[in-house]
């Protein structure tokens, strides 16, 4: 673990991603020269206007997408494809409609790589543990369509954690929820993430959102991006104390950070609706 001290958990260096339109051959630059180091246990939020390539970064780290140019490394080794060491929580959760709550949480354990070395009893126990962690006890046999938005979000979170990844990649995981549920689940997310634990035990997290206050509330650092092409505009270190609760929103520094981020993306946000 000696090397781990100065080596970042995740390293993106000069990452560029171009898409070529199928028929016209037209090239669109989604990401241009994005460099970003993320340390073990860090909670990083990426905010930016639509079209800034937030989701592309996530897909590249997840291994679902390869960069056109640049280096993407985890623990110093290049990322070659998707793997259960990097768990992804998709926009709209990507729950399997034909699986119950249990079935969804145990999906990776039962059919994928994470549960390979476990017995069925161990898998079931692990599923039960995560059902409890996200407070879904009693709803184990329900299907996703029978759940509220907030409950679906918890299922997705439990599935993500049950696979035991060491990096969490979350793509607007609270985006589909109403404002009140969002605020409750933000605090809940920090609790489950392990805010009170020492940094080495926390999961390295990349969290994509378009909600500035959400980013400030959750993050250790906020990466502000600009669009067309997607570039890193600025990176802010949010040195608000942890553990955080609702009262932190009243902290003058909280408002200061939010204003700062808004100032950075305002022009492009205004352009987008003009």
């Amino acid at each position: 673990m000696n090397g781990a001290v100065n080596r970042p958990k995740l390293r993106l260096q000069g990452v560029t991603k171009a898409f070529v339109a199928p028929r016209t051959g037209h090239r669109t630059l989604a990401l241009a020269d994005v460099s970003l180091d993320i340390d073990q246990g860090e909670f990083v939020c990426i905010v930016g206007p639509s079209g800034c390539g937030k989701s592309t970064i996530l897909n590249i780290v997840a291994g679902l997408d390869a960069p056109t140019a640049g280096i993407v490394e985890k623990d110093g080794a290049p990322i070659a494809g998707p793997g259960p060491d990097r768990g992804v929580m998709f926009q709209d959760y990507a729950l399997y409609p034909w699986q119950t709550v249990q079935g969804n949480i145990g999906f990776g354990l039962n059919y994928g790589a994470p549960g390979k070395s476990m017995s069925q009893a161990e898998r079931d126990a692990r599923v039960a543990e995560f059902v409890k962690l996200v407070s879904l006890t009693g709803s184990e046999s329900k299907y996703p369509h029978q759940l509220s938005g907030g409950m679906r979000q918890r299922v997705a979170l439990a599935r993500l954690l049950a696979n035991g990844p060491d990096i969490l990649l979350l793509d607007e995981p609270l985006g589909a929820l109403d404002a009140q549920t969002r605020i409750i689940l933000q605090a809940e997310l920090l609790r489950i993430w392990g805010e009170t634990a020492p940094r080495e035990q926390r999961k390295t997290t990349v969290f994509i959102t378009h909600d500035i206050e959400e980013a400030v509330f959750l993050a250790d650092r906020v990466v502000v991006m600009s669009s067309h092409p997607g570039r890193v505009r600025d990176i802010l270190t949010i040195d608000l104390p942890r553990p955080r609760d609702e009262s932190i929103r009243a902290d003058p520094r909280f408002g200061h950070f939010a204003d700062e981020i808004w100032r950075l993306i305002r022009d492009q946000a205004l352009q987008a609706i003009a």
Partner: peptide, 20 residues
């Protein structure tokens, strides 16, 4: 939501080439 429509449409094809 963060990718533009054209990019997300193109995403499908480019991904396929990178991702045998």
């Amino acid at each position: 939501m963060s990718a533009t429509p054209s990019a997300s449409a193109a995403l499908k094809m480019d991904q396929a080439t990178t991702d045998v």
